[in-house]
Write a protein that binds this DNA or RNA. Structure first.
Lengths: 198, 198, 198, 198
DNA sequence: TATGAATGAGCCTTCATTCAT
DNA sequence: CATGAATGAAGGCTCATTCAT
């Protein structure tokens, strides 16, 4: 149902992305379930029928938000993991990329966290879940090369916790830049587990 | 509207707590908004009228869940902060108490995280927000005494992130005990910031 | 979700039947699809929530209408086929019973005819379809004993056509009674195919 | 808005007929109301704008389907009634023509039956209703000449029932040809009411 | 007291139709 | 001419809550 002719398709995709971003913002503020379609229409400037040109259901917006969040990050992480940087640098770059991505997708990230219990449990969200797992596997691999751990799994979970919590308090343009936060996290990990630690 | 005679009041409170816990479990699984009152009735074995003997509105359940989560933890944290333990031990004990509390309130904690965007934004949730802030202030105080930081706020936020993320993956009776997790987190902090670090 | 205690259940069933009958009337007048739930609410005096105590969906009304139409008729037909009447009398009595049933379920019958294309094609209507087939098998059996046919199937289909068309024009209390119509149809069949014909 | 130059007008009419026939088929399968314009676009290969070149509204399709069904049949019936054939032969020929027409307009006939309750009740469908009545008057006239009846109206209604029901089960190329069915119906009528009957 | 029928605003979504491009 | 994005009223349905019994 999206247009097939390239020019129109491009315009359609552009518009849809704008719609998704606007909705991500509203969802981040009010919560997915607490946001009625009426509010989305106001936020996007569309009418009911208009919105449903871009998505078949409200839930699709959630899905597209997750895709916009995961896909570029996953790609970026793969590139970093594939490069041949020294392990500790690779970790640092990965965390930097991660937090810079979050900085530009704060709303998406907040929405993703909000609805995680759905995403983690429902079969139809398997795709998103798999991307998350793929990303975490990359982080784990980089971590493995960068440190020596009594319990690497716990270190990984600690890192995930720190980073995933960041959108709760991070404000772009605030005292801490995304890079400063990333380096703070990395430093903490390397101090505790880095091969040169102690 | 709750009974006033002590014996009856006690029974009422006991039953209400059971109701709240049952609802916390359902909310944790399905999300607050996605859980209809009909589902709560099934989960509690009550009828519509019955449930509304214990709470005036569905949202009250959310509030009671947060209270059950915050109140005992805050009390415990105050006691630890007030004791005269050496700073690093105080931190260790605080994190242990924290994670042991979470272990016994996994559902409550999951619900609290799920609905945080509501709690953080709406005026009527100020009470819960203040308790959270009070608790975090205590953690910050203990942290201050236990380490030396370039950026203590970031260290605090990192700790909050790690701990708050724990209910996403923690399984009681699993490989890692609550205490092991707590000590893992504490060790990481002390390795990075502890006065004896480096 | 209907009540389980006998007294309440009976009341529930009584009310539901009244609801179904009222809806059958509206559907007969305006068509199923052309009748909005709002119209049903007006016709039944219920509110939206009230109607949905008795049915889970608008389509359930269609199903219940078909059940109310088929079940008693099928039972009646089985009794007549099982009795030991002379064949030509059995046919006469069956057609009489049939038309008397239609006379008291004109709305139901009109609705059933209206939506037959759905009923005949969709898997979820198999139950209704099977009852129809069972009834027609009984008619066929009685027909077989009552006449001698070059093509009994065509005679059966002719009879079905005549009878099923009746609700299009029949008016209770009009010139023709249900019995008169029934006997007219039976006479025509026996004149053409009866063993004593010619 | 249709073209006025003869050549173009002819092409336009041809195309519109094809559109109407395609829509008749879809309506017959799924029901008029249950068929969205989107489905019609898929079935016809047109775009929204394209379809609305041939009809001003979805309902016009219904009207055109009825016209395509009634007009040639009415014409044919008038010719047969006007001819000077012996009465019983005239009846036979009329029923044959009728069923042969139905055979080639099964979809149209099914749609006409489906939506009869609309056609019979709504003022704006008077035109179609009148054609139906005109046709039935012709049938009645031929019937009158062909038989002697206790109740000719009931005989007419029986015949209408049989024939109108035929599209529910008739399959072209099946065991029974349209002519065989027609003759079966005629024979039954003549056996019961024919002047040479008894 | 405890029940569950009833409420009714609001939910998400559909779809026949129009019209700028 | 043809397209397909946009319209927006109306659709069927849900659900937290109340209150007569």
């Amino acid at each position: 149902m999206p247009p097939t002719r390239p020019r129109l398709r491009a315009r359609y995709d552009r518009r849809r992305q704008a719609v998704v971003d606007a909705c991500a913002h509203v969802f981040a503020e009010r919560g997915y379930h607490a946001t009625s379609v009426a509010v989305l229409l106001q936020a996007t400037g569309l009418t009911a029928g208009g919105l449903y040109h871009y998505v078949a259901a409200k839930e699709d917006l959630l899905f597209l938000i997750c895709e916009e969040l995961m896909d570029p990050l996953l790609e970026r992480a793969q590139a970093i993991a594939a490069a041949d940087d020294p392990p500790e640098l690779a970790l640092r770059e990965l965390v930097r990329a991660w937090l810079e991505h979050i900085e530009h997708h704060l709303d998406h990230m907040r929405v993703f966290q909000q609805e995680r219990h759905v995403i983690e449990r429902e079969p139809r969200w398997a795709q998103v879940r798999e991307k998350r797992l793929a990303f975490e596997a990359i982080v784990d691999g980089v971590l493995e090369r960068a440190g020596q751990f009594e319990d690497r799994r716990l270190a990984l979970l600690a890192l995930l916790g720190m980073v995933n919590y960041t959108p709760m308090w991070f404000r772009p343009g605030g005292r801490l830049s995304a890079r400063a936060v990333a380096d703070g996290y990395t430093d903490q990990l390397l101090a505790a587990y880095g091969r040169s630690a102690r």
